[in-house]
Design a protein around this nucleic acid. Sequence first.
DNA 1: AGTTGTCATGAAAACGTTTACGTTTGCGCC
DNA 2: GGCGCAAACGTAAACGTTTTCATGACAACT
Lengths: 350, 350
Amino acid sequence: MTTKNATIKDVAREAKVSVASVSRVLNGTGGVTPQTQKIVREVAARLHYVPDSAARSLITGRTHTIGAVLPDLYGEFFSELIRGIDLAARARGLHLLVSSSHDGVEDAAAAVRAMRGRVDGMLILSEYVDAAFLDANLPANLPAVLLNSAVKSTRYPVLNIDNRAGASAMVQHLVSAGRERVAFIAGPKTNFDAQQRDKGYRAAMAKYAPDAPLNIVAGDFSEESGYRAGRELLAQKTRPDAVFAANDMMAVGCMLAFKEAGVRVPQDIALAGFDDILIARYVSPPLSTVQVRIADLGRVALERLASLLNPEDSTPASVQTLGCDIVVRETSGGSVSAAAPRRPRRPLPP
Amino acid sequence: MTTKNATIKDVAREAKVSVASVSRVLNGTGGVTPQTQKIVREVAARLHYVPDSAARSLITGRTHTIGAVLPDLYGEFFSELIRGIDLAARARGLHLLVSSSHDGVEDAAAAVRAMRGRVDGMLILSEYVDAAFLDANLPANLPAVLLNSAVKSTRYPVLNIDNRAGASAMVQHLVSAGRERVAFIAGPKTNFDAQQRDKGYRAAMAKYAPDAPLNIVAGDFSEESGYRAGRELLAQKTRPDAVFAANDMMAVGCMLAFKEAGVRVPQDIALAGFDDILIARYVSPPLSTVQVRIADLGRVALERLASLLNPEDSTPASVQTLGCDIVVRETSGGSVSAAAPRRPRRPLPP
DNA sequence: AGTTGTCATGAAAACGTTTACGTTTGCGCC
DNA sequence: GGCGCAAACGTAAACGTTTTCATGACAACT
């Protein structure tokens, strides 16, 4: 093992051919005789030759790397998303450069700029991006796909989770389980997902329970805020007979409030969440919720981006949404379907 | 906005200086007059000039990127680890190239090889790596840090979680809470962490409860295996008065078995887990467990690697371990400390 | 036999930087 | 005023590839 890595010149010299030929055989460009191919391959293997990716992308202008810029995400969502992206990227021979953990516009902008020239395309999930942000920070010719974003751009495809449909389906489920007065615990006002879930709740109520009053209390996605919302709901003159929280953590907090007050779930009040986080299965009773296929989101996003990388494939930028399934457990008071859709979970390591 | 990105030559031409000077001012190498500096910076800003990283690393031989190859990890461990790494990398101006999701030696080897030339150093966490693997797949001069690995290499630093001490501390806690016959639900035989936790249990039993019998039942880190182990323990002629599971998921499964059998936790049998996954706080009663500071693991690993990148800093390769804290909740039957160490958790998005 | 075409191959340019080295300039000092 | 010296700056080589273009060989047609 030499201390210096072999270059294409070394291979060419050893194989007694030109560097051009070496390049040709290693890249599969045609125009080289089988026997020279054989020689070149042997020499390359013997010298442990690996093409220098810097030199390669200098001349080709491609890095075979895509960048993912993500906000400061925690837990399941984050890992599932990266997992989906990574898997799909690997399948296409693409590398993945991540940049997570940033709050604030400036931080996000820096992350995007820092990737300039290092990636062939970007996946962006950040509440801070809007049209102006993209214009200011993205090189004009760099393909990108936006995740969970409200921006409608003609230049960049957007990929969203169908929060509206998911929320709507859950309301429908609650109503069809015999509930009428479905209350909603909202998420942060500025959060795009929260907004969509709110809309889904309103739309579904108008459609499936037009006579029931809209009953929305504030929340911020935290367990604590769910607890407060639960107490607030219990204090109402006419209590709801079902509560739909905009995410699972708030549902868990709400459940705690109910437990403390001696209100039984689902007999007295049904309860449902959104996200299907791991905990949802382990609280008692197990929480009915809306399952988001996060890994799929990552996979589809990457596939969309990959198609953008091929200039010939010029499907126009569009907004695409990914459906989500409701998973019925015990808190919704409906019939507990034994074959409820259940994402396979592997044991946590280690 | 031009369609072609500006190069250093464009800047030089506009600023009426040579490319060398432009390079010098942008890199902060001295030897250039303040007023030319000013001009160059202005022009560079005006043209939105960003140095091409490929060209730069071609000549300098450095990529300012580090690679993380990880096994097919799920959930909290994964996200916390990447989080820690990313944060520390960002603080040092390093980029992060990840490659997760692979099982099998070949897969891991391919991942490592694919990073060749794209990174200045690597962080490797994989059960498949051993000395031979490293020799075969890592370029001779590439710095790397191994995580959670049994290999003792003179070339690569190793960073482990102190599973032994953590397990030992938990046993000590159980004993000091008045339990004697502490049983252990083991993890997968081949898993390094599981082995260390097993050792910690044995050592602590010998030290703190020398008269009690060792009581080890098999498990594989899955909830299901914990359930089976729980039933197995209940069937023993003399039941244990405490059960220590090698991870939280098994503890949860075990708790379910106890609940079904009408055995009260912790009154009849105390229970403890390992990892402090999010669920541990939400099962009832809340699970006592050993907290692993995963983000710290990532951070320290990256810092170690970063120090390896500076040739002048040549601290020798060594095996370093990271401590973990026990967090006492209700299942261990000890005094529930109100101020139990509690890692701050943020709400899951979205 | 001469012309044309195909095909494998090589020489060299190009990609955008950094940096070693050489050149100019300005300045103080004898 | 000539000399030396340092500071500022420019020239050009180097990094390791891909790719265009030219060259030569050889076969196939007229």
